[in-house]
């Protein structure tokens, strides 16, 4: 009884491994190439990227799926495993926890074409990274802070989580730019303790693990703790709208400057209304589009256009009151909303 059960298990495993090898390795022959684009969560940001993926797939005549893990790194891992089992030709992924996923990503890279987008996994064997340099984007955001507060002041940073490479670099970029430090992406300031510069003080960094109510509570607690705070920076797309909610309820709109990241509707509206000084936007549409383009090029053995470091830069932009309406109209067009 027990023996036969074990035999079953072994043969099932063998079949699985064999299937994996044959699907992953032999993808160049026979059936049509399929590509997958895997996000790091569910967010409107990724909906924009999705429209880029779809546009590229249509333009290039390939099949591309967009997958969004809802339950973190564990679900992302099983999504990638399933993609391998299905025999996907190439995958573009935004790793949730790049430092700890290196081995796994290398396994994926052995079986299929792997590139990263949005957030990089620099130690893995991914072929290309499409994204912006988050450190530079952070510095662009920091520049907006200095613009909003020419006299200097105290700043709190709010972010979803710090385990992601992009979040970490983005935050460091903000801090380094605000404090006028040199360009050094490897620098790291502990999130709990204040960083004091000449004109500016970074009070700290609060994380919410994607719990919206907690994110709002973080903004409220900041106002309670530092009633005379000068500015709050929201680094994930949902942070700035929740900062606005907290400020509105506290009656401190316009009193505390808000500097945003990404392009939530409420953020863009805030820039128009003047309650948000400005935001730094990535180009998720291009992440999606470029990912499929590059995967197809690699699959067909053509040049993918990245340099030796495998980095394809998609520039971040600063959006202020003067260019917000034009940007928003373009965004709506890409999303097919208008």
């Amino acid at each position: 009884m027990k023996v036969s059960y074990n035999l079953c298990l072994i043969s099932a495993l063998a079949a699985f491994t064999f299937g994996l090898a044959s699907c992953g390795g032999g993808s160049s022959g026979g059936h049509k190439a399929t590509y997958a684009f895997v996000s790091n969560g569910v967010d409107p940001f990724w909906t924009i990227a999705e429209s880029g993926v779809k546009a590229a797939a249509a333009d290039l005549g390939v099949h591309a799926d967009v997958l969004m893990p809802a339950a973190g790194a564990v679900e992302q891992k099983s999504m990638l495993e399933d993609l391998l089992t299905r025999g996907t030709t190439g995958i573009a992924v935004s790793p949730i926890d790049s430092a700890n996923q290196t081995d796994f990503l290398n396994m994926v890279a052995e079986n299929t074409i792997l590139i990263t987008q949005d957030s990089d996994a620099p130690d893995s064997n991914r072929l290309v990274y499409i994204g912006m340099d988050n450190y530079d984007a952070g510095r662009a955001c920091g520049a907006l802070v200095k613009e909003a507060l020419p006299e200097g002041g105290s700043v709190m940073i709010l972010v979803g989580r710090m385990e992601q490479d992009n979040a970490r670099r983005r935050r460091q970029g903000v801090i380094d730019e605000v404090l006028g430090r040199s360009h050094d992406p490897t620098r790291f300031d502990a999130p709990g303790s204040p960083v004091v510069g000449e004109d500016f003080t970074i009070l700290g960094t609060l994380t919410d693990q994607f719990d919206r109510a907690k994110a709002k509570a973080n903004a409220e607690d900041t106002l309670a703790r530092n009633p005379d705070i000068s500015a709050m920076v929201g680094l994930f797309a949902y942070n700035p709208p929740l900062i606005l909610e907290a400020l509105e309820q506290a009656g401190k709109l316009n009193e505390v400057k808000v500097i945003a990241f990404d392009e939530a509707d409420r953020t863009l509206q805030g820039i128009i209304d003047g309650t948000i000084h400005g935001t730094v936007v990535q180009n998720p549409y291009m992440y999606g589009y470029k990912s499929i383009e590059v995967l197809k090029a690699i699959h067909e053995g053509r040049d993918h256009g990245a340099g030796d470091d495998g980095f394809i830069n998609i520039d971040a932009r600063q959006i202020r009151k003067d260019n917000v309406e034009e940007f928003w109209a373009d965004l709506k067009k890409k999303l097919g909303k208008e």
Binding site: V42, A71, F210, R212, A213, K216, Y238, L242, E245
Partner: peptide, 17 residues
């Protein structure tokens, strides 16, 4: 009341835990 307070809700994680 939660959504009236927070003003935005994400199906994936709103009310998680």
């Amino acid at each position: 009341l939660f959504v009236l307070d927070v003003n935005l809700a994400q199906p994936v994680d709103f009310g998680n835990f």
